[in-house]
């Protein structure tokens, strides 16, 4: 088997603020993305998805564990100017303002990406067109766009650089339903056709379901379930995954409020002992309060792997 394009192994990332408890935003998470594969990363708001993504881009250092891109370890930016492992990585940030320079016309910013890729055949206007924007928008500044238009620009800029690993952090959250499906498919097609990998972070599970080959579900700093998208969808096994899928509101016009997950959103600075989900889990058992289920693909004592299936 070839090495995956991206491996995140037992990654721990901490946010430190003077005078406050350390926030362990990513607390031993593992994740893999193969070339040509789309992995959807989902989970509760604040569970560490963006922190993980930013660590992969070298924007946060790892407290422990490691990140390999194309087999090379990623070191945080600033230690070296541009880590060679990162040249093929592009990220579309959750807040599109972070992906774009407010003082430069978007056409010029897309042109930078094209130059990085050594692409002289494509023009910024071509890319705008591909993401569904008028060609003459290249002359505008980021603030002259609507929320959804700005997200499309951020995607066009990232795609221009022809990344081998594209990370989208809520990249299409502001688009309407029909545009979401279209832009998500575009991201998928461009990644898969060129053999790149796509790590797609989204709260919109219907979009993840549409484009992801595999899905990774994160809860409070850990990946608690991974599997092929269709399988997880048809048979979610971790109780948190079940709660997540059950909370998707249905567009049937019936006016039914979706189910809420009971209990408080936990503070990552002070995570519960044992299974991190136990205070909110409807199926909690004694063992859950004491021992952390530290295994995959489903990190839950109800789904512990067989003691020995070595053959």
């Amino acid at each position: 088997m070839t090495a995956p394009l991206l491996s995140v192994e037992d990654l721990v990332v901490e946010h430190r603020t003077p005078g406050r408890p350390v926030v362990r935003a990513v607390a031993g998470a593992s994740l893999h993305v193969a070339a040509g594969e789309v992995v959807g990363l989902v989970g509760e708001s604040g569970c560490g998805k963006s922190t993980l993504a930013r660590a992969v881009c070298g924007l946060h250092g790892a407290a422990s564990g490691r990140i390999l891109v194309g087999g090379r370890p990623v070191t945080p930016l600033g230690l070296r100017r541009r880590d060679p492992a990162l040249t093929g990585v592009q990220m579309v940030f959750q807040d599109p303002y972070s992906s774009l320079n407010p003082r430069r016309r978007v056409g010029a910013q897309i042109a930078d990406g094209l130059r990085t890729a050594g692409d002289s055949a494509t023009s910024p206007a071509d890319l705008l067109e591909r993401v569904g924007l008028p060609r003459d928008f290249a002359g505008r500044y980021p603030h002259e766009f609507s929320g959804g238009q700005r997200q499309r620009v951020a995607i066009a800029r990232a795609l221009a650089a022809r990344p081998s690993l594209l990370i989208g952090d809520e990249p299409i959250s502001a688009l309407d339903a029909s545009a979401q499906a279209q832009v998500a498919r575009l991201m998928r097609d461009l990644a898969v056709e060129s053999g790149a990998g796509l790590l797609f972070i989204s709260h919109d599970l219907s979009v993840v379901r549409l484009i992801a080959d595999r899905i990774a579900v994160m809860y409070l700093g850990k990946v608690v379930e991974t599997g092929p998208t269709a399988e997880v969808w048809a048979d979610p096994r971790h109780p948190y995954t079940r709660a997540l899928l059950a909370a998707i509101p249905s567009p049937d016009g019936a006016g039914v409020l979706p189910a809420e997950l009971p209990g408080d959103v936990p503070d990552p600075a002070d995570p519960p002992a044992g299974c991190r989900f136990h205070p909110r889990c409807p199926l909690v058992m004694d063992v859950c309060r004491e021992k952390e289920p530290d295994f995959g693909p489903v990190a839950c004592w109800l789904h512990a792997p067989e003691p020995s299936s070595a053959s």
Binding site: S45, A247, V265
Partner: peptide, 17 residues
Amino acid sequence: DEPTTALDVTVQAGILR
């Protein structure tokens, strides 16, 4: 204006309620 777009569905359910 899109108050729950940045939220996961379980937290979204809480905000909608």
